[in-house]
Amino acid sequence: MFAYCADPQSLEGLAWLSCYLTTGKHLLFYQSFAFIVALLLVTAPLALGVGFMGALATRSQFAPLRWIGTVYTSIVRGVPDIAFFLFMPLAIDQGLEWMRHKMRCPDWDEPIRQGSDFVVCASAKLPLSSSPQWVHEYYGVVLGMSAFAFVFGAFAAYVLAGAMNAVPRAQMETAEAYGMTRRQATWRILVPQMWVYALPGLSNLWMILIKATPLLFILGIEDVVYWARELGGRKTSAFDFPHPDWRLWYFLALLVFYLALTKVSEIGFSRLARRMSRGQATAAGVKEARA
């Protein structure tokens, strides 16, 4: 990066460190932090959306929809995250490839499952093996995100359903007295008021989601954990900057990063909670009004 970095062997002390910390590989490491934040910002609304639909489903008057909602939340809540995390991307990937295989290669006579191998015709592959590398990488990321949204959606559904039940019954009765239909009352009275009850649960979920992002590593996605391990390992002279096993320092950096991220979100959520309590018939809302 700097001009004096051309010959790393001749460097010492701070100059060496400044060159070492700005190698292309380190820049990829720094990028992966931004990637984690971006991923969280995309995944969280997605999970919230899934959760919202799940919560509405569990409250639905239409029985099959209610069953789907209940089964979804109870199954996901009862299975370890990591098991779902290994299962979901594989299941989605094979499911999509299976469907494409049935559509594109109807006259394929070999079985799809051959022992432990899952073999579909070349044009059914997802992504196609001729597509560029970034497509393959993004495909993996999208699969990971859908797994996150699926798992955390179930928890969010539970939180939101609880919040919906927490909205005072009198509010809904008043809505009915004004002649609103059930649908109108849900959208105009229930949904706007439930967020303050949902917030503590949702902020908790957000924290857990932040801490769950290293699970991407087990899917083979090159995230912060991957680069920390890769950079921290002992380096021989095959590399420009040989050094002993520094994994401790790199994992310490991860620790600081995650702590900072959760601290910032804590501050953000407490502000949001204060704002949402305004004018609400809750203890925090009353306190806010008196102050």
Binding site: T23, G24, K25, S130, G233, A238, F239, D240
Partner: peptide, 25 residues
């Protein structure tokens, strides 16, 4: 030309056979 793109898979953690160098390549 697409048909003849060959994807080479390596581990990238076994110097000096294959590794990720300081430029991330």
């Amino acid at each position: 030309s697409h048909a003849t793109t060959v994807r080479l898979g390596t581990e990238g953690a076994y110097p000096p056979f294959n590794f990720i160098d300081d430029n991330g390549e």
